[in-house]
C-alpha cells in the first residue's frame, strides 16, 4: 500500500497531478462510464437481491441473523464517524507539517507518519487498549477512535500533502506578490484549490476506515463484526452469519463510494466543461 512515495512522487500521485485511488481502497465508480450496467450497480443490486432472497426464502436463520445485527451497526457507525472527525484534522495538520520548512515540525510529522504506517492497525488497537492499560485506562470506544484516527491521520496526511503539492506553484507566488502572508495564502488560495483533489481520496480513506472498524471486535467492542462472531459462536452457523455480515458491509461501502463519486463529479464540474 502507498509505496509509490518512495520513488520521489508524493503518496497517491500520478505524474499528471491527479490523485490515484490508493490500493486496498475501493475503486470509485466512474459516473461517465457505462450507464446503468456497471460494476457498481451490478454489485449493489447483486448484494441487495442476494440478501433479500436469503431472508425471504430461509427466514430461519438469515432473517434471524439480520435482526440480531442492528445494535452492532450502530457501534460500527459510531466508531467510524468519530474516527473520521478526529482523523481529518489530524491528517490536515500532518500534511501541513510534512510540507513545513521548519525542520523540527517537518521531522515530527514525518516521524509520526513513518511510525504509524509501519505498525498494523490491529497491533495499534491491541497496544492502545491492552498494552497502554498499564498506565492509562481508556474505554473501548475511546481506544478504538484513538487507534483508528491515529492510523488514518497518518494515511490522510499523505493525501493532504499530495493534494497541496498538486496546486501549481504560481498560485502561491501570485498570492504572495499580492500581499497575502503565508497563512493567508495557504488558507484562502492553496487549500480551497487543493480540496478538489483531496476530497475523493479522503472519502475513499473514510470508506476504508469503516471497513477497518471491524478490527475493534478484538477488544470486545460490540460492533457489527463482533455481533456476527457472537452469533456464529452461539449457533455454529458460520457460513450463514458471515455471508450476511459480508453483504451488509458491501452494501454500506457501495452506497458510500457512490456518495464520494457524486461529490467528486460535482467538484470536477468545471473540468468537464473544458
Amino acid at each position: 500500500m502507498r509505496e509509490n512515495e518512495e520513488n520521489g512522487l508524493p503518496a497517491g500521485m500520478a505524474p499528471e497531478g491527479k490523485i490515484e485511488v490508493p490500493a486496498g481502497g475501493l475503486v470509485l465508480p466512474d459516473s461517465e462510464k457505462g450507464g446503468i450496467v456497471n460494476a457498481w450497480s451490478l454489485s449493489l443490486v447483486g448484494a441487495v437481491v442476494v440478501l433479500t432472497v436469503l431472508c425471504t426464502v430461509w427466514p430461519d436463520p438469515y432473517l434471524e441473523i439480520l435482526r440480531f445485527l442492528p445494535g452492532g451497526l450502530v457501534v460500527t457507525f459510531e466508531v467510524t464517524i468519530l474516527s473520521i472527525v478526529c482523523a481529518i484534522p489530524l491528517g490536515l495538520i500532518t500534511g501541513l507539517g510534512r510540507l513545513s520548512h521548519n525542520r523540527v515540525i517537518n521531522l515530527i510529522a514525518s516521524t509520526y507518519v513513518e511510525v504509524i504506517r509501519g505498525i498494523p492497525l490491529l497491533v495499534q488497537i491491541f497496544y492502545i487498549y491492552y498494552a497502554l492499560a498499564k498506565f492509562l485506562q481508556v474505554s473501548g470506544l475511546t481506544s478504538a477512535v484513538i487507534a483508528i484516527s491515529f492510523c488514518y491521520g497518518a494515511y490522510m496526511g499523505e493525501v493532504f500533502r499530495a493534494g497541496i503539492m498538486a496546486v501549481p506553484k504560481g498560485q502561491t507566488e501570485a498570492s504572495r506578490s499580492l500581499g497575502f502572508n503565508k497563512v493567508q495564502t495557504m488558507l484562502f488560495v492553496v487549500l480551497p484549490q487543493a480540496l478538489r483533489t483531496i476530497i475523493p481520496p479522503v472519502g475513499n480513506e473514510c470508506i476504508a476506515m469503516l471497513k477497518d472498524t471491524s478490527l475493534v471486535s478484538v477488544m470486545a467492542m460490540p460492533d457489527l463484526m463482533q455481533f456476527g462472531r457472537s452469533f456464529a459462536a452461539k449457533s455454529y452457523l458460520y457460513f450463514e452469519t458471515y455471508t450476511v455480515i459480508a453483504l451488509i458491509y458491501l452494501i454500506i461501502t457501495l452506497l458510500l463510494s457512490k456518495a464520494v463519486s457524486i461529490l467528486e463529479s460535482r467538484l470536477n464540474y468545471y473540468d468537464k466543461r473544458k
Partner: peptide, 16 residues
C-alpha cells in the same frame, strides 16, 4: 465477549 479469557481477566484487573 473477548477473544480469549486471558484478555477478559486482564480487563478485570484493569477495572474496565
Amino acid at each position: 465477549e473477548y477473544d480469549n479469557v486471558g484478555l477478559a481477566m486482564q480487563d478485570l484487573l484493569n477495572s474496565r
